[in-house]
Design a protein around this nucleic acid. Structure first.
Lengths: 345, 345
DNA sequence: TGCGTGATCGGAAACGCTTCCAGAGGTTGC
DNA sequence: GCAACCTCTGGAAGCGTTTCCGATCACGCA
């Protein structure tokens, strides 16, 4: 920076002010400094800057999964706006509870970042305090978080769109494949989506049959297993509501292998609108994933600029009807065994 | 740190040495310092450390795509070993050529990181120099890069496994769906996979029919379009080789919609072994994606430790035969129109 | 014309570490 | 027994910014 200052004919103090957009710097001087910096292709050292009290221009992004489409897409949107604002993204993958503890234990120890974005997972109480106590900004996206500026879908509403669709089609025996986090057993991945199912059924005057609900770890193969389980019922459902598209894909494989037709013998609906859903012809509830990442990024930028975050809250989902759902067959489920479907391979 | 030093009854110099594992510190002294640090729950400030000449303990990871399964999975593996080694991961998404230029232009300006890992993309000559000139280590994974420690599959070999499988099954008219980067038109995503096709056909004494090769941007929908194009030929192929599973999924949708049976009417083979391939019953050439990320991470660690990277180079792929491939129908392609398949929905 | 005022700018003190340079003891080799 | 050498430790000089505290200067007003 000394070089830049010299070249611009000013002191380091002024150069610093010009570079970091401080007021009280003559416009002409600022221009001169900027030009000098440009010529020397100089950029401030984040280390020195931070050490001296400036910002780190770095934000931490915490995700429970990297390779899953949903999280990766959220991240993609977020990274785009952050990088546009010249912020560096530090990626932290917290897989299980131990990782979580580790993360919240260590990151705050020293100010490595100006803010942290939590993607697709809840923030526990103690962790919240830890974060807050060190004055970094926090934003959440894609998960069920309150207390913070956040953006996500309304899981319960999305679930209702899916289940109501099945009800509207005339289904009365509807199965649900719920998921839990593979790494954190017992942690329901989406309580809201399960609640929607119960409420929709209750409102329709249908009984809650425990056998129609099966809970598995998130994933395609578990989804396939879940479907097998539903097919093993004395009276299987005529439609299934899966908490996520990937799980629905698994369910569809089981149906295909069992020689059942979709949707004639079984309707399937998922949530997310995974890119593959279009290819698999899966009816699903679409949510704008990338946009949520983008919105979270923008909120963070506002916060960092000292303003109030806007555009947060809940974003709308919409049902996308494809070929995997249809009315139940007239004879209901009992009729199935009487009409062997044509062998297909 | 002053506090720690005082509490341990040593000077700051010694405290620093103890904390950063320098030699020439009495074991007993080191223990005392560590204990003091522990009690005060002190950790060194990365900023100050770096400023004074230490390492940043940060590595940049450059990826051309974040949300695609392949890249996200690579990243997941890499992040795991890096974080295990207490290194922070700075994520940079370079979408198109402009982003690339931007990245290589700016990152090197100041030493923000100790090393950079390039995932799934080539490094141009000029960029290479830029990187090297600033002395950061470089490692590549999942892409066609030489000059550097790298780990990836042998695309040509993988392609051969796929095409040879089709040839072995008796196919003589084999189509190929090749892909180019959506963001960089002209940039063939996988030259090796295309070469494999040409070589395999040539060795089998089959003519190279331009019409059997269609090139589309990477993606499921483009894959579907490509299949449509192949089906519009006067004499369509009896099997298709897609450069990647996602593209194959798209092709499968087109076949399903056209009422064609897989594999009776058309065999399909992909590359990657995407998790969805198992669910879609797609024959494919599997590559260990996460492992490549892990291997790259380990190599980087070795480099950072001043050693020589090991475990790099090419990793093996293997054909995974599922239900999407089979022998061509006896009558070859001409017989198709004569035997209408049963309507399926 | 004298002086308060606000806009600019410079000097210099942190910020929290690492490491060079020495110095104090204790060992080893002849 | 003495010099040469290690091992361990402390003092202090940076590392590259930001920012506090004044200093300077032009301007407007009484």
């Amino acid at each position: 920076m000394a070089d830049v200052a010299r070249r611009a004919g000013v002191s380091m103090a002024t150069a610093s002010r010009a570079l970091s957009n401080h007021p009280h710097v003559a416009e002409e001087t600022r221009a001169r400094v900027l030009a000098a910096a440009e010529q020397l292709s100089y950029v401030v050292s984040p280390e020195a800057s931070r050490l001296a009290g400036g910002a780190t221009d770095r934000v931490a992004v915490v995700v429970p999964h990297i390779s899953r489409w949903f999280f990766a897409t959220l991240l993609e949107g977020l990274e785009a706006v952050l990088r546009d604002a010249d912020l560096d993204v530090l990626l932290y993958h917290v897989g299980d509870a131990a990782d979580r503890r580790d993360f919240f234990q260590r990151l705050p120890a020293r100010r490595k970042v100006d803010a942290v974005v939590v993607l697709g997972m809840p923030v526990m109480h103690g962790e919240r305090e830890r974060l807050e106590s060190m004055g970094v900004h926090i934003v959440a996206a894609g998960g069920q978080v309150e207390h913070y500026p956040y953006v996500s879908i309304d899981d319960a509403a999305a679930g209702r769109q899916a289940v109501d669709h099945l009800l509207f089609l005339g289904h009365r025996r509807i199965g649900m494949i719920a998921t839990v986090e593979p790494t954190e057993p017992g942690w329901p991945a989406n309580p809201g989506r399960a609640r929607a199912y119960r409420e929709a059924l209750a409102e329709a005057g249908l009984p809650a049959e425990p056998g129609l609900v099966v809970t598995v770890p998130w994933g395609g193969v578990p989804g396939a297993d879940a479907m097998s389980q539903l097919l093993s019922l004395r009276e299987p459902p005529t439609a299934v509501y899966a908490h996520s598209d990937e799980v629905a894909f698994g369910a569809m494989r089981t149906l295909r292998r069992a020689g059942l037709r979709i949707p004639e013998d079984m309707s399937v609906v998922g949530i997310d609108d995974h890119p593959m859903a279009e290819l698999a012809d899966l009816t699903t509830v679409a949510q704008p994933v990338r946009d949520q990442g983008v919105a979270a990024g923008r909120m963070l930028l506002a916060l960092l600029a000292g303003g109030e975050p806007e555009g947060g809250g809940t974003v709308a989902t919409r049902l996308v009807v494809r070929g995997s759902t249809g009315p139940p067959r007239p004879g209901s489920s009992r009729a199935r065994s009487s009409s062997p479907r044509p062998g297909r391979r």
